[in-house]
């Protein structure tokens, strides 16, 4: 049982929680995820850790209401408990001084990007964050991103905030303007697919953090398998980050829909 100490509504469908988990707060690194489950017969779902406070012994989780289980978690209030929480899981992000790093994120993928932006900056990189959403109200964590990025580019589909366009338009503008050494992308699978296609065109190494279906999150079930470079990999233990140019995003999207309609 892990207590929720703070709840914040970031946008219409996105909630931020600070959850008591001192051991995870101590051992987690950028890129790690946790598995959460609410209720005795709740579903185990993976969530990438968006931050931690060592003093308070808490971790930050950002959740988007999409399915039955995420709605159930989002309905919890401060003072209530997450029934089961385990982690940190997966491989941490590979952090080093690359030079200029573009962090391309969209939707709820912005939250797990935050610790990566922070770590990349601390490693001495020039960090340009391109964050995108459908409309102004859905842009989250902008202030936090500003704090650790050298520059934040906001993109909205409807032009209600920042520049009008998709995340790929924002990334391409940066590429055309200056030399980019690495791109990191987190967001919906379709978004990562297009970011990956774009950077491949410019031959820029790109890392994507995948969020697939999982059950145990420790390598036991294989629900999260993806094809990377023609080989089957488990997102939970080999990932969640992979060379985006090697990821079969079409297969991944198809597998994400495996349980659609029977949930």
């Amino acid at each position: 049982m892990n207590k929720i100490v703070k709840k914040e509504i970031l946008s219409e469908n996105v909630v931020k929680f600070e959850v008591e988990a001192p051991l995870i707060a101590r051992s987690r690194k950028a890129g790690h995820f946790v598995i959460v489950k609410v209720g005795k017969y709740g579903e185990r779902i993976p969530l990438t850790i968006a931050g931690a406070d060592l003093e308070k012994g808490t971790i930050t989780l950002v959740i988007q209401r999409i399915g039955k289980s995420s709605k159930k978690i989002c309905a919890l209030d401060a003072g209530e408990y997450i029934t089961d929480l385990v982690g940190p899981l997966g491989q941490a992000t590979h952090i080093e001084k690359f030079g200029t790093v573009v962090c391309a994120c969209g939707g709820v993928g912005t939250a797990p990007m935050l610790p990566i932006v922070e770590a990349m900056k601390k490693a001495g990189n020039k960090v340009i964050t391109v964050q995108a959403a459908r409309t102004k109200e859905l842009i989250i964590l902008e202030r936090e991103m500003q704090e650790f990025s050298d520059e934040v580019v906001i993109m909205t589909d409807d032009g209600s905030y920042g520049k009008k366009g998709l995340v790929t338009n924002g990334v391409e503008d940066v590429i055309n303007r200056e030399k980019v050494d690495l791109c990191v992308t987190i967001g919906p699978a379709i978004m990562m697919k297009f970011v990956s296609q774009l950077t491949q065109k410019y031959d820029i190494p790109t890392v994507a953090s995948l969020n697939t279906i999982m059950v145990d999150g420790t390598g036991m079930c294989g629900a999260c398998r993806v094809t990377v470079g023609g080989k089957t990999k488990f997102v939970c233990i080999d990932g969640p980050e992979f060379d985006a140019h090697q990821v079969d995003f079409d297969e991944m999207m198809m597998r994400l829909n495996a349980y659609k309609g029977i949930e």
């Binding site: 059950v215 145990d216 036991m220 079930c221 294989g222 398998r225 089957t232 829909n257």
Partner: peptide, 16 residues
């Protein structure tokens, strides 16, 4: 075709 939806490990099936 082993990564098609509907193909799963016994571990996943039994755990579910």
């Amino acid at each position: 075709g082993e990564n098609l939806a509907g193909v799963l490990s016994s571990n996943e099936y039994l755990t579910r």
